[in-house]
Design a protein around this nucleic acid. Structure first.
Lengths: 212, 212
DNA sequence: ACGTCAGTATAACGATCGTTAGGTTATTGT
DNA sequence: ACAATAACCTAACGATCGTTATACTGACGT
């Protein structure tokens, strides 16, 4: 249906075919739309190829299958998010400012394309998916560890109390991720993931952590 | 496999057959196990009847089908949780104490049977399920409104600042639900949903809300 | 000019999906 | 004692699932 008109037959590539291709990117993008909408289990390969305007062998030419396609999508989006987070916290100093950067950057990243947080968080916080859980745990813990390192520095610097690092990190991630997940489900435009909300949440967490 | 040995052929009931039956409860319980483990979309009717040690017509005798069975399970668990929450907050006074009761009671309810929070929250925060979304939204908003009414009273009584009621409620629910969801996925025994954690989270929220 | 091969399509594979038609058994009211 | 019916079963329905064998097409190196 959404056939790519400008995507004619591909000219012979010099590089590995299964690694770079406009058609490949097109299928990935359509798969993101469907996976974000219905989740992995409820999405069929036929849904994806129908949205992309191609046939099954095209999907299986570029990807290992439904699972491989999904895993790549998930990994790409998680790692892109992580890179942006890492670069954003390197620009400011102090625990509070860095937590602020993390929240702001996450809100911005997820507002840019609501399909992304829907894919990431509905997969992470929904039912387990055999073959995905391991990789998802790895990707999720990279995020968690990034926040954890910032909070650990905050404790060391006396900005935060000497309570449990993991407990504080979990609380911050719960506030951030769940707000993103809940507010990404509404298809309100503009996004409710505003910088003001990010400010308020960081303040609430920080002041709460200090006083609790 | 898990055939109910003591569940012989049921004697004729006086009441409506599809409303009360040991076999019916047995199927419901087995369905809870499977749905909590794999989610709605990835669970097949055959998975459930295999776990219950019965055959398909038995399931369709007591329930309308996979969807009806799932909806009943979800509704029963949500409403039981809501009733316990309502009775628990009626025993204490003041916003802070009532929020504390809500958090404690939720932790207790979810620790008693980890299948329940897995079913409730992984369904609520995972991908949409056609035919379930509407009912789930209704059940979820009852929970939300209960917390909201407590917080609104807290604002009116001056216990909480005059910020957005919905914002505060969402933040509280994010902290509570996401902690339950994340910690329910680990199969640690004993549960990490301790009263100490509940105390700490309520303090963090309350002090944070005051200072932010 | 032509064989090669990357890229895409047709069509089908066996497996599994949710659901049900129809038969069997056991208990009940009469 | 016996018809009626609740409570199951065996078996199968058509639809859809993920995946693939096979064939075709057209741009490329030679």
């Amino acid at each position: 249906m959404t056939a790519p008109k400008n995507l004619k037959r591909k000219q012979r590539p010099k590089t590995d075919a299964s690694r770079s291709s406009e058609m490949r990117d097109h299928v990935l993008d359509c798969a993101l739309t469907i996976f974000a909408e219905k989740g992995y289990a409820a999405t069929s390969v036929r849904d994806i190829i129908h949205a992309a305007g191609v046939t099954q062998p095209t999907l299986y030419y570029y990807f290992e299958g439904k699972l491989g396609l999904f895993l790549e999508l998930l990994t790409v989006k998680y790692e892109a998010s992580l890179r942006e987070l890492q670069s954003s916290i390197s620009e400011v100093q102090g625990c509070r400012e860095q937590l602020h950067s993390i929240m702001l950057q996450s809100f911005s990243y997820c507002s840019a394309d609501v399909r992304v947080p829907r894919l990431m968080f509905q997969t992470a916080y929904g039912p387990d998916i055999p073959g995905v859980t391991e990789q998802l745990e790895r990707l999720g813990s990279e995020r968690f560890d990034l926040v954890k390192s910032v909070i650990a520095q905050g404790i060391a610097a006396g900005e935060l109390p000497q309570s449990s690092v993991d407990g504080l990190t979990l609380a911050f991630c719960c506030l951030m991720d769940q707000h993103i997940n809940v507010l990404s489900r509404l298809n309100d435009s503009p996004s409710k993931l505003t910088p003001q909300l990010a400010d308020w949440l960081v303040d609430l967490f920080f002041q709460g952590a200090l006083a609790a």
